[in-house]
């Protein structure tokens, strides 16, 4: 299992947004602290994943 952060190596209260991923050997991806931007990215990678598509927000301000 590989663990990735989308930004920093530690949770940060700074301006960077942080999501955490755990990629399982079978290709399944678990996500913690999913931000709208990262949901959008995951949705682009796999538009058929209904778990992610239900969480994609198109009306959010881009700076959030």
């Amino acid at each position: 299992m590989k663990k990735h952060r989308s930004k920093n190596d530690c949770a940060s209260p700074g301006k960077d947004q942080v999501s955490e991923l755990l990629i399982l050997p079978d290709g399944q991806i678990l996500v913690h602290n999913l931000t709208p931007a990262f949901a959008g990215l995951l949705h682009e990678l796999n538009p058929d994943d209904e778990h992610i598509s239900s969480r994609v927000t198109r009306h959010m301000s881009p700076h959030l």
């Binding site: 209260p13 947004q17 709208p36 959010m60």
Partner: peptide, 10 residues
């Protein structure tokens, strides 16, 4: 103190 403040959809 706080360690995270952001908009999330999870």
């Amino acid at each position: 103190r706080f360690f995270s403040a952001q908009t999330e959809v999870s």
